[in-house]
């Protein structure tokens, strides 16, 4: 008999190292033509580091995204970064990049203030221009400012940024401390169909919702949520490093044996993005990279329980485990 069940799981996740102390630096150099080069030390493993750093720089300098180049390909030459892990790049490197871009913009304003004969604090950078707030006629293109600054005034328009949260101090009496930069929140909802004769579980629907603070790039974000959810589906349904644990024999040693999900194993998925800004992240953003794999598994296990009343406490939920649990329950 086939039975349908629904399950929910929720979680939270910090951005960056819990306890603080992880560091990222960034450099933003404005070229004489008004384009910008960002250099950061965190690599792009497909999560979109280059895209997000370019977006932040373009936003601060008021220039086109296409006018920003991101260099992050060699940790020998790039500024310090603790690396791409702990859902930290958008948050920590993002803050460092924002500081560096603001520092570069300050130098541009110094140059433009001389050229426009005004004070630096009345200037703004928008539409590839540096202009006087409220008086758009009094403006210069960013290329004019950068060119005149570089060649006329011998300026080096290089902004520097360094973000590091102080290591969290702990009260020795109460152990109280404030270890997190920020927390992102998540919930997954799964609907499954369990075949009580074969033990097979089919995921009919999976909805994943995330509080991301600020969706810096909604398309990338959906991609990251889908990808993480698929890892969660794999962990829940098929991936097993030690099928005969505690014996470590027969562990899979190729992609044919270690069964990550294929297109046929991924259910219809839906992403719900919720924006509750963090107080100190760049534009309110939080990191959700790692947590996207966490909630789908428990939601699926809860849905199996809802369907047939068994608890799978050892993933993956293979047909064999489901059948054994049904037997034990006497169903």
């Amino acid at each position: 008999m086939k039975k349908i069940g629904k399950g929910i799981a929720a979680g939270f996740y910090p951005s960056g190292m819990s306890g603080g102390g992880d560091s990222s630096q960034a450099m933003v150099k404005v070229q004489p033509d008004g384009s910008a080069v960002v250099t950061v030390g965190s690599c792009d493993i497909g999560q979109g580091c280059k895209t997000i750093m370019a977006q932040i720089t373009a936003e601060v300098l008021g220039i086109d995204y296409e006018a920003v180049k991101v260099v992050n390909d060699d940790t020998d030459n790039c500024p310090l970064s603790f690396g791409t892990f702990a859902s930290r790049v958008t948050y920590v490197d993002g803050l460092a990049t924002k500081m560096a871009a603001e520092d570069a913009r300050r130098i541009l304003f110094e140059i433009a203030a001389v050229m426009l004969e005004c004070s630096e604090d009345v200037l703004e950078a928008v539409d590839s221009q540096i202009r006087v707030k409220g008086n758009p006629d009094k403006s210069l293109s960013i290329g004019e400012v950068a060119g005149a600054g570089t060649f006329g005034m011998r300026k080096f328009i290089l902004g520097l940024g360094h973000y590091m949260r102080d290591p969290a101090a702990m009260d020795p009496e109460t152990c109280e401390c404030d270890p997190f930069c920020t927390l992102a929140w998540a919930a997954s909802f799964a609907e499954v169909e369990v075949d009580t004769e074969t033990g097979e579980v089919e995921i009919l629907r999976l909805v994943n919702s995330y509080d991301v603070g600020k969706a810096m790039n909604p398309t990338h974000l959906e991609g990251q949520i889908d990808g993480g959810a698929t890892m969660g589906v794999g962990a829940a349904m098929s991936e097993n490093l030690h099928p005969f644990f505690p014996s470590l024999e027969f562990q899979p040693d190729n992609l044919g044996d270690y069964a990550i999900p294929t297109t046929m194993d991924v259910p219809d998925m839906e992403s719900v993005i919720y924006e509750c800004p963090s107080t100190n992240g760049p534009y309110g953003a939080k990191g959700i990279g790692e947590m996207t794999a966490n909630t789908p598994g428990p939601a699926i296990v809860n849905a199996i329980h809802d369907a047939v009343g068994i608890w799978i406490t050892n993933l993956p939920a293979t047909p064999e485990k489901v059948l054994r649990a049904l037997d034990a329950k006497g169903a």
Binding site: E222, D226, G227, T230, I260, T263, V266
Partner: peptide, 20 residues
């Protein structure tokens, strides 16, 4: 049909949704 055709190509990042 797209899912079927791509079922032999593994991807660990995207969850396939945006590929399809």
């Amino acid at each position: 049909e797209v899912k079927q055709a791509l079922s032999g190509n593994l991807c660990r990042c995207t969850g396939y949704v945006k590929i399809i």
